[in-house]
Computed example of a mutant assay.
Amino acid sequence: MSDVEDDSTQSPGAAGVSRGEVVRLLDHGTASADTIIRDMRGYWNGIRKGRAVPARSDVDPRAIARMLDFAFILERIAPGAARMRLAGRHLIDLMGMEVRGMPICAFLNAGSRGRFSDVLETVFKAPQIAEVMLHGKSGYARPEMGARMLLLPLRSDFGDVTRALGCLIADGEIGAAPRRFDLVRDAVFPIIDGGTILPPSPSTIGFAEHAPSFERSPAPARPAASPATTPEERRAMFRVVTPGPADPRKN
Rank of each mutant, 00 (worst) to 15 (best):
G42W: 07
D39L: 01
Y43D: 07
M40L: 03
D39E: 12
A236N: 04
L86W: 05
K137E: 13
F189Y: 14
R235D: 08
E173L: 13
A130L: 09
D27S: 15
T30S: 12
M145D: 05
R100C: 13
S2A: 04
S217N: 09
S117L: 04
A221I: 12
R148Q: 06
M97G: 11
L183S: 02
L26G: 12
V132I: 13
A228I: 02
A177N: 14
P153H: 05
L108S: 01
A63P: 03
G172Q: 13
D171G: 02
G111N: 05
A63N: 11
H210N: 04
F70Y: 12
A170P: 00
F238D: 08
A170Y: 02
H135L: 02
L134M: 01
D34K: 03
P103K: 04
P103I: 02
G146Y: 10
A236V: 00
P61G: 11
M67A: 09
A236F: 02
C105R: 07
G88P: 02
V22K: 11
A15I: 07
L86E: 15
V240M: 13
E144Y: 07
L154P: 03
E5L: 13
M149H: 03
L91S: 01
P218R: 13
A78E: 15
L151S: 00
R83F: 02
G42R: 15
V4C: 13
G42V: 03
K137H: 10
D247G: 04
L94T: 07
F158G: 12
M84P: 11
R24H: 14
D186K: 06
K125G: 04
F207M: 10
R48D: 06
R249P: 01
K125W: 06
N45H: 13
G88N: 01
P61N: 11
D3P: 08
A110W: 04
D247L: 09
E215Q: 08
R85I: 07
I192E: 14
A31M: 06
L120H: 01
E144I: 14
L94N: 09
A31F: 02
V123M: 10
G175K: 13
I47W: 12
D60T: 12
G111C: 05
P190G: 07
V161E: 13
A228W: 12
G206V: 04
V23G: 03
P220F: 14
F214K: 14
G146K: 10
V17H: 00
K137Q: 15
S226I: 14
S57P: 04
P245W: 05
I169A: 06
